[in-house]
């Protein structure tokens, strides 16, 4: 079966491309990125700040049961065009990873299907490759485990 989520990371480039098709109308897919409550539900993070507008900013955090911060990330929102695209930065705080630039493109396929194309540009090829290796390391893995726990609670 064809995978719904695809990851392309070509040789020597400082970018990755993630694509995904959703059984959702494009406006709902877009909403999942712009409404704090919804972002919290699917990302499993607490949204500290979410100003989804041109020259806005956002901040997420994940804490464990004792209130310790496991993961915190923030970024500036460069430009938002409703139901079309979001251009923003993303930085994991205290991770040693430099900021990355994200281009999120939202496209309708049919009335109830849509596609997300996420292009992430890193500061260097080495930074990109390190980020791809990260799921084996501490940072995202911890956030990911935490996410899995949250999801299993919802089930």
């Amino acid at each position: 079966m064809e995978q719904k989520t695809k990851l392309i990371a070509d040789d020597g480039k400082q970018e990755i491309l993630i694509t995904r098709t959703f059984d959702l109308p494009v406006d709902l897919l877009f909403k999942a990125y712009t409404e704090s409550e919804l972002v919290e539900q699917w990302m499993g993070n607490k949204v500290l700040k979410m100003e989804n507008q041109t020259h806005g900013s956002y901040q997420f955090e994940t804490t464990d049961g004792q209130g310790n911060i496991l993961f915190r990330a923030n970024g500036s929102i460069h430009k938002v065009i409703e139901n079309e695209n979001i251009t923003r930065t993303f930085e994991m705080e205290n991770s040693g990873f430099p900021v990355q630039l994200e281009f999120l493109d939202f496209e309708p396929i049919t009335d109830d299907k849509s596609k997300l194309t996420m292009k992430i540009v890193f500061r260097s090829v080495a930074d990109r490759d390190n980020m791809l290796k990260l799921p084996f390391g501490q940072g995202i893995n911890m956030a990911h485990n935490q996410l899995e726990k949250l999801i299993s609670k919802l089930k």
Binding site: K4, T5, I18, R20, D23, W42, P135, F136, I140
Partner: peptide
């Protein structure tokens, strides 16, 4: 693992929005 991380997140997004 990196693809799976995003796949899991997007599956969750789809469920939440449905």
């Amino acid at each position: 693992p990196f693809r799976k991380l995003w796949d899991d997140r997007f599956n969750q997004l789809e469920q939440v929005m449905k």
